[in-house]
């Protein structure tokens, strides 16, 4: 009857027991299992569940109509697409689906806005299952003729199956109502911790 370590159960022969090949094999197999489990944990740590996704097609946002951003699973060198947990489905390009429960960092960079004439405000918001979780509303974009960039981020508690959308709402007059800067917006979702 071999002894074993208290936590991982690595078996070893006790004094007086025969050290035969089976004893060595048990020892080696138990060490193998423990190291392999660590390898899995380390691999998970180095390869967090994440989805980094750009919107590479022109986006049209009508004034005063909150609209979800449409994302694309195509990479640019500076705006990579990466999804290691099947969060993006090209059939539903305006949403991500959380497949592994956890605490996620969600970062949204909204788009460059081209030459609005009398823009009053723009709001970039993250929704979970249709409910606003966090947002930022920027005002005073009057007469903007150059790009405008806004970044928001927060930790969000997510269950498997939760739907994440990134919505834009602006008001004002003038236009155009199309945001077309290539490479923006960009949504980044990565898992920071398991659920508590």
């Amino acid at each position: 009857m071999p002894g074993q370590t208290p936590i991982l159960g690595i078996r070893y022969p006790l004094l007086g027991e025969t050290i035969d090949p089976a004893a060595f094999a048990n020892f080696a197999n138990d060490v193998n299992s423990a190291v392999a489990a660590n390898q899995t944990l380390a691999s998970d740590a180095l390869n967090r569940k994440m989805c980094l996704i750009p919107a590479l097609i022109p986006q049209s946002f009508t004034v005063n109509v909150e609209t979800s951003i449409t994302f694309t699973n195509t990479s640019l060198a500076q705006r990579p697409f990466r999804d290691n947990d099947n969060m993006f489905n090209a059939g539903s390009p305006t949403q991500l689906t959380i497949n592994t429960a956890g605490i996620y960092m969600i970062i949204s960079r909204d788009m460059a806005v081209n030459a609005f004439t009398t823009m009053v405000s723009i709001r970039n918001a993250i929704f979970r299952n249709g409910v606003l979780v966090f947002a930022e509303r920027r005002n005073e974009q009057d007469g903007s003729t150059s790009s405008m960039l806004e970044t928001i981020e927060a930790l969000v508690r997510c269950e498997a199956g939760d739907i994440i959308t990134n919505r834009i709402l602006w008001n004002g007059t003038g236009g155009p109502a199309t945001m077309s800067q290539l490479g923006y917006p960009h949504l980044e979702v990565f898992r920071v911790a398991p659920l508590f």
């Binding site: 690595i10 070893y12 027991e17 050290i19 060490v31 660590n38 944990l41 380390a42």
Partner: peptide, 26 residues
């Protein structure tokens, strides 16, 4: 056999220490 026991215990200690570090990260 005594060496194998000590080896097993020290391997366990090293592995658990690694897990604690990984847990800090994950």
């Amino acid at each position: 056999s005594v060496y194998m026991q000590r080896l097993a215990e020290e391997i366990e200690a090293k592995i658990l220490a690694q897990r604690a570090l990984i847990s800090d990260e994950t």
